[in-house]
């Protein structure tokens, strides 16, 4: 309900959901069930710090550092912790690597489980019924809508995330990137390429 009267007598009334959230927050903090400081840390983290740039750093390192890739395969949590990335709900991150034979794609058919610590909050399409329902049933069609056409011989494997297991796709390293350092490599890694609905960029 936005209005522009400069001399309006009262404060702008927030939307219905905003008021309901404020109500819950008041009740829970007054009862001591949540700590307002903890809330602030979570807000700051997800609004400002966490995002696909972190996942891109992981993928770039996996491309350039075979030892890191090996660690990522055997103990992803440990390898990520070494980079200062850790999960919040004790969830387990599994890295799935694309190869010429297999292209990986991630969905959450239950709700919207997603590797938050690596990619932040999922995009709207990931949370939509359309994607959640169709990714498993007709992945190639969905990929085509994202502008991705895979070679005939490359299979598509769809991973269904859960509260406990979250997947990160490691796309194939693009050709012509031999001389690039990790920062330049990370710049090629798009969010969608780590969900499996896109491919990494190519060097200019």
């Amino acid at each position: 309900m936005p209005h522009d009267h400069h001399d309006h007598p009262h404060s702008l009334l927030p939307s219905d959901p905003a008021l309901r959230v404020k109500a819950l927050e008041t009740i829970l903090t007054r009862k001591g069930l949540v700590d307002p400081a903890a809330l602030d840390v979570i807000l700051e983290t997800y609004e400002k710090k966490v995002g696909p740039h972190l996942g891109a750093q992981v993928v770039a390192r996996a491309w350039s550092d075979p030892q890191f890739l090996a660690a990522l395969r055997t103990d992803a949590a440990g390898a990520l912790a070494d980079m200062g990335i850790s999960g919040r709900q004790g969830e387990h991150v599994v890295a799935v690597e694309n190869t010429p034979e297999v292209h990986n794609m991630v969905v959450c058919t239950l709700c919207s489980c997603y590797p938050w610590p690596l990619l932040g909050i999922p995009p709207a399409w990931y949370k939509s019924d359309a994607y959640r329902a169709r990714a498993v049933r007709e992945p190639r069609k969905v990929l085509a809508e994202f502008g991705v056409t895979l070679p005939e011989g490359q299979k598509v494997r769809v991973w269904d995330s859960t509260a406990e297991v979250r997947y990160l796709v490691i796309p194939m390293r693009p050709e012509g990137t031999d001389g690039l350092d990790d920062a330049a490599l990370a710049a090629l890694v798009t969010r969608d390429s780590m969900i499996g609905t896109g491919l990494p960029g190519r060097p200019a």
Binding site: A18, K22, E25, V34, L43, P52, Q89, A163, E164
Partner: peptide
């Protein structure tokens, strides 16, 4: 396209839920 939330209350709601779970009020599952 990468903005995590459309409106501030969504961010508050998200943080509230995660904070409750981290405080052990319910499991993420």
């Amino acid at each position: 396209a990468l903005a995590p939330f459309d409106e501030p209350w969504q961010a508050q709601l998200f943080a509230l839920t995660v904070a409750l779970s981290e405080a052990g009020r319910f499991s993420w599952a």
